[in-house]
Write a protein that binds this DNA or RNA. Structure first.
Lengths: 330, 330
DNA sequence: CTGTTAGCGCGTTCAC
DNA sequence: GTGAACGCGCTAACAG
């Protein structure tokens, strides 16, 4: 009720209290390299700022510089799991260390066209886990967005780099099964259209590995998260001699396992992706492949920071990003 | 490569092309009620704007009005599951329909103090799934944030409203078990400190229901997501006559199930929360309680919109927010 | 009623 | 270390 009427503390307030000009305040606050400030003045300003609880207006700063300290991550509307959550947490931390703030926009087909969104934020960079048209990307660039990273999409050709780890996941899965002696591999494709963007590169990785190892291409079945339906898929695999399957992720793998139980074909080897808690708790415990989310976050962060400072992009980390977790299911 | 050097399109450009003043452009773009504009002028302006691809600078607008169209959702650093993801998706849609943009900030203990974050965004409202000190909340208010909703925390006393559904979850769980004839209930508490904020009200709900039904208070065990450890908990429950347990969520419930298998005590009834895909696929399939995320999102959206327009907050929806999904485990 | 003029909000940065 | 213009949209005051 007692609306404390703090009107905003501005740099003018700080300047006044410190007995200097607003320009000086700005120089001190930003450690502007081209401008030297006496140690004495500097402390006076810093002191005044602290005493008043001054924080510069992000809006004004953005207006003036044409760029904010915000990095916007656009998510499509697929069901985001804990892995993505953890990646975003890491990314947030990594960016924060560089003075950047990560915000995430949960995508949604019903949303007004996405450009409204980045215009509302004026981000320094956009990380888009979604497909943008070249036109949209160009528009963002034009509007001052320093960098548009599309970890998965077909953005600028040189920016699909993170699609590589996705393929690595598939290779790792198939590689494990093949080296365990399986010669006929199945692929359990997700039922959800929205997951294509992840599923395709993973499947491609499986294909590559099969080809490299002279094993026949994977027998693809779409598997919903439902035991009965999965059982049919399992029966079809069995009929064609498939003895091991790579699943899109742990949930799909769990469905395959449930289907195998129901079909009475428990000998089927299954390998998932992500290592969700339920994977460890399943019976049999699920063998799975994980991605080092911290490393992905670090890479993304480095890419963004480099672009903002106009430095060349860091090398894409490839190996060591994907790890196998061996358990009983394969 | 050919960096098209679009410098930003401003209202001045539109004004010039339309042959009017910048003020007129502003009036047209915002449908300012106090100012009438002839249909002719209006179309000329709209036309010019469209032709130039004009979109007002959010920064300038925010600077001038002291408020942006962004609603900021602050998440703590707990593992966010798909339920939260779906809630945020719904919320995003609902807010978008009102011309508001939702952005989410994944919390992180290492982040610089959180106020830096909302100062960097100047949101119209903040929805915080985290504990803020009254001081911090007051500071946000002072800085022009129209509303701070803390669905779970102890913000202003009148804003812990959504804690109610959390309790409802617990009541629903216990109620189901009790009406199934169980007279000694256990509670499987999560291992992760960060989940307390959810776990406490849920547990409180279980307590309430037990008391209301004259059943002894729940026997609490902390259960990690690991079968062996869960087995110990199951044995302790068994020793004290517990025949049914409410789990913090489906993952914990799955752990309890795994523990029961390992302990050879498969008769234990278990009920989870969330209905994650793995719940349906488990053996036995998990009985669980779900929250209507769309309804929660609608409520949150309505609350935010009301606050921004200075209207009174909508009533808290209580019933129909929580549903039971009966399966074999209980 | 229609539309214009002009100043504000606030941090940044160049010239003195 | 300072003065002052600038970035861009909003809106009160005012003129046809």
């Amino acid at each position: 009720m007692a609306e404390t009427n703090h009107r905003r503390v501005t740099s003018a307030d700080v300047a006044q209290l410190a007995g200097v000009s607003r320009a000086t305040v700005s120089y001190v606050m930003n450690d502007t390299p081209k401008q030297t400030i006496s140690a004495d003045t500097r402390t006076r300003v810093l002191d005044a700022a602290a005493r008043l609880g001054y924080a510069p207006s992000a809006a004004a700063r953005t207006l003036r510089t044409g760029r904010s300290d915000v990095v916007l991550c656009l998510l499509p509307d697929w069901p985001i799991g804990p892995e993505v959550g953890s990646m975003l947490g890491n990314l947030s931390t990594a960016l924060a260390r560089q003075g950047l703030t990560l915000v995430v926009h949960p995508g949604n087909r019903e949303d007004r066209p996405m450009f409204e969104i980045w215009k509302a934020i004026t981000p320094a960079a956009v990380i888009a886990y979604a497909d943008f048209s070249p036109g949209e990307i160009e528009a963002m660039r034009a509007a001052g967005v320093a960098l548009v990273v599309t970890p998965l999409g077909r953005g600028s050709r040189d920016q699909r780099e993170l699609a590589v780890p996705q393929q690595l996941i598939g290779r790792q899965q198939a590689g494990h099964l093949i080296s365990a002696g399986h010669t006929r591999i199945g692929y359990a494709y997700p039922d959800d259209e929205r997951l294509r963007i992840f599923a395709e590169p993973r499947l491609a990785g499986v294909r590559d590995e099969c080809r490299a190892s002279q094993v026949g291409g994977p027998a693809i079945e779409t598997v919903a998260l439902e035991a009965e339906q999965a059982a049919s898929a399992v029966r079809r695999w069995h009929a064609t001699g498939v003895t091991a399957v790579c699943a899109y992720n742990d949930e799909v793998a769990l469905a395959v396992l449930a289907g195998a139980r129901r079909a009475g074909l428990v000998a089927l080897a299954v390998i998932g992706v992500d290592d969700i808690p339920a994977a460890r708790l399943a019976e049999p415990a699920l063998t799975t492949v994980t991605t080092d989310q911290a490393a992905v976050a670090a890479y993304l962060s480095a890419t963004v920071v480099a672009a903002i400072h106009g430095r060349p992009a860091p090398a894409v980390p490839t190996a060591e990003l994907v790890h196998l977790v061996r358990r009983e299911s394969a």
